[in-house]
Design a protein around this nucleic acid. Structure first.
Lengths: 130, 130
DNA sequence: CTAAACCTTGCCGCCGACGTCAAGGCAACC
DNA sequence: GGTTGCCTTGACGTCGGCGGCAAGGTTTAG
């Protein structure tokens, strides 16, 4: 399979596949004329990459998962390095959730106070109008 | 007050203050030699900008708050435009919290399954060793 | 007089996952 | 042989909030 077909079947672009390759995540063979040739297994790899990217992983974080898949495992998650990255990412997400919760809290209060202030001002204005 | 003093008192850099100015958030007078001159009120404005940036606002979102402060209000939050931005940002944060919660959930499951798979494999290996 | 410490404008670098040309080679069909 | 459609490498653009440097003018202290 050549790059165009893989791109279409993976739901992405040829540019993206070349980008992954330049970062060592995919390594296709080359045909006589220099075209990239991928085998079926690479489709699975690209799907794995895309899924992890969608969850917020960076390409560097994804590398162990790809290696794990290439090692013949049914899932990219089961190798020690992958598990380590998963743990770290979970901790990062928990951390981010905490901070974002605090931000939400502050925004909520800030909004409530602003609205309260507006109503108060409105009342005073009406009282002056009396 | 010149730019260096304002930067120090606001806990930021001169580069940052010039950047804010280039985006219309601060507009100092100029002295005869071309130096930027700020009055005391600008310190408050810069603090407002920094506080909102820290919460995740972009410079464009912050503009109404600065205008509100300049209009003489004790808080930058109380003007209609500011309230609108606050509402929108709160909604965005809520949205992001939802998605991040889903991501956390997925990561948690993925990690749990990976560990379960590893233990299972480990058991099988020991059984073979028996 | 000179060094130090301010200030000015302007422009490139950064991060990350690509998009978007540009300029050209290869393959297949009419 | 010309057109179409694939492929190649290379290099610049994107977004945002600055950092950092260059090359110069100003002011103050010694």
């Amino acid at each position: 399979m050549r790059i165009g077909e893989l791109a279409e079947r993976a739901g992405t672009s040829t540019r993206t596949l070349r980008y992954y390759e330049s970062h060592g995540l995919v390594c296709p063979r080359r045909s006589a004329n220099g075209y990239r040739v991928y085998d079926e297994a690479e489709l699975r790899v690209v799907h794995e990459i895309r899924a992890l990217l969608a969850v917020g992983f960076g390409l560097d974080d994804i590398r162990p998962f790809v290696a794990c898949l290439r090692a013949g495992n049914s899932s990219g998650d089961v190798c020690p390095d992958s598990v380590a990255v998963l743990r770290r990412k979970l901790a990062e997400v928990d951390d981010y959730l905490d901070r974002l919760g605090a931000v939400r809290h502050q925004l909520h209060d800030q909004l409530a106070r602003a609205i309260a202030h507006r109503e108060e001002t409105c009342l005073r204005t009406r009282n002056r109008a009396d």
